[in-house]
């Protein structure tokens, strides 16, 4: 790589470049294999006919769909179908509330000027430095006092509230984006007789659209990816979300039976999330190029 001495003639320069290219490609290929192997392995394992915990070969010797069928039909111990539906419902509500909360706070922080603005922003930063896990038990006690730990719908409501309540402090990315919208848009709207609410809904929200998609997907993913809060709040199996349920599948009591089913569950959860994620990436990049074109 170092070009300290000047090459004597073009021939050696070309060989060196070829060697460099070859090395780079070999390096990338090895790395790519390392990165893809676990993903491919889970995918193959989910079709494994041999459901034992420790399969003897890397790739299954016989393939079957039974793991998927069992995952969605066996409701006796770990009812994956209802976990999936439960998490989906929670995710839809969290997504809506999260977007609304983040938009509201970001709008106030970015477009309005008031006395509590700076303190609120610093306050959100300091809150972020407390390890979130520290207070999960206290959150459970609060939900208990509010009568939201009874199981069933109560647990779902509790999870929606807790996930949504955290979004008031995660406005920074959205605020940063709104900061790039020229203030002249707001001023023009005010001159045209718009109230602040109309400015918010008719000017700021449409301009912020790519970022809203990003935020919506982030909000939608919270319940799918969270383990800690869910593990404390959903205490019994009939209340589990997908993350807690899948963690259970690998615990001593279940692993012998559920190993291949876990792989199938991993594929079922990963595919929609991966699709959303790739989709989100596009919108995130689009929003990073700026809000107002031209």
């Amino acid at each position: 790589m170092t070009a300290v001495t000047k090459p004597a003639h073009t021939g050696s320069l070309r060989t060196r470049r070829l060697v460099g290219d070859a090395l780079a490609h070999i390096f990338l290929a090895v790395m790519a294999i390392i990165w893809l192997v676990p993903i491919i392995w889970v995918f193959a394992e989910s079709f494994n006919k041999n459901t034992a915990q420790n399969p003897p070969t890397f790739f299954p010797t016989e393939y079957t769909f039974n793991n998927y069928i069992r995952l969605f039909t066996d409701t006796s111990v770990l009812d994956f179908t209802s976990m999936f539906i439960r998490t989906l419902i929670i995710a839809i509500f969290v997504c809506a509330l999260n977007v609304f909360f983040v938009l509201s706070v970001a709008y106030c922080m970015s477009r309005l000027r008031f006395r509590m603005r700076k303190p609120y922003m610093n306050f959100a930063l300091v809150l972020g430095m407390f390890p979130g896990i520290m207070s999960v038990v206290a959150i459970y006690f609060i939900l208990n006092a509010l009568g939201l730990t009874g199981g069933g719908a109560q647990t779902m409501i509790a999870l929606v509230i807790v996930y949504a309540a955290g979004s008031g402090a995660s406005f920074y990315v959205m605020k940063g984006f709104m900061d790039t919208i020229p203030m002249s848009l707001d001023e023009a709207a005010t001159l045209d007789g718009c109230t602040k609410w109309e400015t918010f809904t008719k000017i700021i929200i449409p301009v912020t659209k790519p970022m809203i998609v990003y935020q919506a997907i982030t909000g939608f993913l919270i319940p799918w990816l969270d383990f800690v809060l869910a593990s404390v709040i959903c205490r019994t199996q009939e209340n589990y979300t997908v993350a807690v349920g899948m963690y259970q599948m690998l615990q001593k009591e279940y692993i012998a039976d559920w190993y291949a089913a876990f792989a199938a569950a991993a594929v079922c959860v990963s595919i929609p999330i991966a699709v959303l994620f790739i989709f989100m990436q596009r919108f995130y990049q689009a929003s990073m190029t700026g809000s107002v074109k031209g």
Binding site: F101, S135, I161, A165, G166, S167
Partner: peptide, 11 residues
């Protein structure tokens, strides 16, 4: 309100 009830109060 959400932040105070489920972040500040628990902390």
């Amino acid at each position: 309100l959400g932040l105070i009830t489920f972040t500040v109060l628990p902390i």
